[in-house]
Amino acid sequence: MPPVQHGYSRGPSCFERIKYGAMIGFAVGISTGAIFGTFGGIRYGLRGRELLTLLGKTMLQTGGTFGVFMAIGSGIRCS
């Protein structure tokens, strides 16, 4: 009976590493944006809808930035 291989035999491909790096970077950026966006909005005196709007924008911007840089870093390490 031949051995059963589970998962990747040689590890994830380069594209998958870049994709995973982007996803992890986006998650880190979202959490960082939530923290800094909340404190920044409260410091500016925002409440309610304005605070949520600022928080959403900050989270998406930092998530996108971190995701792009993590994807680039993963791509550099991949080659």
Rank of each mutant, 00 (worst) to 15 (best):
A34K: 07
G25N: 05
G21D: 05
G11K: 03
I72L: 15
T62F: 12
A22G: 13
V28W: 00
L55A: 09
L55R: 15
T65F: 13
G63K: 02
T38L: 04
I76F: 07
T65K: 12
F26E: 01
M23A: 08
V28K: 03
M70D: 09
G33I: 06
M1W: 14
G11L: 08
F26H: 04
R17P: 01
T32P: 02
C14M: 09
I42T: 04
M23V: 10
R43L: 12
G25F: 00
R43C: 09
Q5G: 05
F36G: 00
A34T: 13
I30E: 11
I24T: 09
M70E: 09
V4L: 15
G56Q: 11
S9D: 07
G21Y: 03
M23I: 11
H6N: 11
M59L: 11
G73L: 03
P3I: 12
G45N: 07
I30A: 14
I30Y: 10
S31I: 05
I18K: 03
S74Y: 08
R17S: 11
G73V: 03
P3W: 12
I35V: 15
V4P: 10
L52A: 04
R49S: 13
M23D: 02
A34E: 05
E16K: 14
I35Y: 14
S13Q: 07
L52K: 15
I76S: 05
T38R: 05
I72Y: 04
L60V: 09
V28C: 00
G67H: 02
S74T: 10
M23N: 04
Y8Q: 00
M59R: 04
G73W: 01
Q5R: 15
Y44P: 01
C14D: 13
Y20G: 10
I76C: 06
I30K: 10
T53D: 15
S31K: 08
G48D: 10
F66M: 15
M70Y: 08
K57E: 00
I72W: 06
V68C: 08
R47Q: 14
S79T: 06
T62C: 13
P12F: 08
G73P: 00
S74I: 04
I18L: 11
G7R: 14
Y44M: 12
G41D: 09
